[in-house]
Write a protein that binds this DNA or RNA. Sequence first.
DNA 1: GTGAAAGCGCTAACAT
DNA 2: ATGTTAGCGCTTTCAC
Lengths: 343, 343
Amino acid sequence: MSVTIKDVAKKAGVSPSTVSRVLSNHPRISRETSRKVKEIMEEMGYHPNIMAKSLVSKTTESICVILPKPAEELFLNLFFMELIRGIVTQANRSGYDVLISSGGNEKEEVEAVSRLLNGRRVDGAILLYSRQEDPVVEFLKSHNYPFVLVGRSDKYPDLLSVDTDNVQAAYDATKHLISLGHERVGFVSGPPNLVVSQDRMKGYAQALADSGLEMRNEWIVEGEFLQDSGYRAMSFFMNLPERPTALVIVDDIVSFGVLRGLHELGYKVPEDVSIISFNNISITELSTPPLSSVDIGIYNLGYTASQALIQSIRHDGETVLPNRYIIPHRLMIRESSMYSRPK
Amino acid sequence: MSVTIKDVAKKAGVSPSTVSRVLSNHPRISRETSRKVKEIMEEMGYHPNIMAKSLVSKTTESICVILPKPAEELFLNLFFMELIRGIVTQANRSGYDVLISSGGNEKEEVEAVSRLLNGRRVDGAILLYSRQEDPVVEFLKSHNYPFVLVGRSDKYPDLLSVDTDNVQAAYDATKHLISLGHERVGFVSGPPNLVVSQDRMKGYAQALADSGLEMRNEWIVEGEFLQDSGYRAMSFFMNLPERPTALVIVDDIVSFGVLRGLHELGYKVPEDVSIISFNNISITELSTPPLSSVDIGIYNLGYTASQALIQSIRHDGETVLPNRYIIPHRLMIRESSMYSRPK
DNA sequence: GTGAAAGCGCTAACAT
DNA sequence: ATGTTAGCGCTTTCAC
């Protein structure tokens, strides 16, 4: 059907191996032959068969990204897309292809990963979450396949991973609110089984402690990580005898719910309540008012993850590679936390 | 290194081809052998090498998705992620893998697609946009590779494509505003070179015409398809001697900008201006006020695109397949267009 | 510097 | 119902 290395060889009057050598820029090939062969390739429209190549080279030059199961974190769409963009961009630059996979449940996820890695279709995997117990991690680890976590594993702290320093980020966000004069700062969390929720909570608590401020359980809501949890949280907070005057919110999307809840209850942001959240997704600056948010460099997270994984795939074992990358974050202060609450 | 078909064959005391036949559920294989071979596979941890298989079968069981170049349409992230989810889900169900690719510019896009298709790494492609002139389409078409467009091509109306009836959708959205009593309806468009902008504009114009309403050029803004274009559009509209009382907005994200612009100018939605936009991305219901939006079934669009493509790849040419799929849309009416403007 | 030959792991005639 | 054989398109010793 399509043009093979043999066809080119025949037409060029050389052997297939020579053509192969031209392809891989073998050093001991004459300028002249190389030029001629390349010309003929062009002329015949030759394209190397990637499958054949990887069959013999035992390397696929591709990696896979495992998406978490949909329902659970659907609202993370924006986050994931940005991440994927970073991953794909860096992978392509390194000559790697990216395969996206997902499973309806954990079992299917393992099956998918197993098929891809055991079947030698990809060289490594990127995991986009960090659950407490993860069968996919167990699988990858036990088979010794290269993989990187975007996030971190509590159980195996030494895994190759790319992450935000969520404790510090939450600390900084909380301190920012405190610096505006707030003394009653609340926290709207996500699902407790995600490491990120715990880390951000920890940073929040630490900032309060360091500032000698009180941390009250009633100012903390561990909502589901869902879109309307912010709204529900609001009704709760605003009915408190002593309600918080500022909120650290675990995710921008939840903030949208909070904003709406506050609006309906007749409160104004930032005059009545200041808020800051995490991720700095693209619509934060378009909301009313624009949301303060901790930019965690999502694209960079993805880019670095891909880089780290590919490095580890290519790694020959002679040098030792870092296994933990922290992507810097920075506060994007916008109107939602611009003014301090009048005492 | 890893277990091959030969290893299994040896251990089972059969020939490699028998093992291969067991793998593919060949009819003429004894119950007994099949059982035994499968048992040994399990025991030895055998996994078929996908590359080897596709080298001989000349089919990769995978498709690729071409992402548009980033900068241009970054805000479409939410849209794309949902689409990709639909694609990946359906592809995986059909036993196909999905490869994501992108290029920094059109030339790189063609190179990527060429490498993947010509290199026989994927069996077909899904294109997530429809530009007027598209070298990727030209490439795919001229090589006769299976591909599907999410959107449509003006130049080649017969291409396999999955789309929203954008004319009708815009018609419906506009009619909805009119039915609320609005007589001055404006339109905030996207970049004019996208077919989708043109189609929506057409539906908008048609609805006005059918209702005997005036369409004024000053009520139409062809902004860049960027996040803050909505905001800029607002300052323009509101300074008009006769300003529109309702707006059809080409995308939800643009609506966020509009909302913010109106808020800053002291106008209320929907009391002063009613708005409705397109796509119904997940945050529309969380905005303040919740946004009316035309749900175009993004996930379904992706799911159907994948299905159509795989069908066309597997197609034996005996029957004739439809080449155009229209995914139904529906209006999601929320507060932003709930009340008619007082005359 | 280049060619010949073997083989990557699998499938698919063609035998039996 | 199963074994034998010949590739798929490429890379890679080993010769010369």
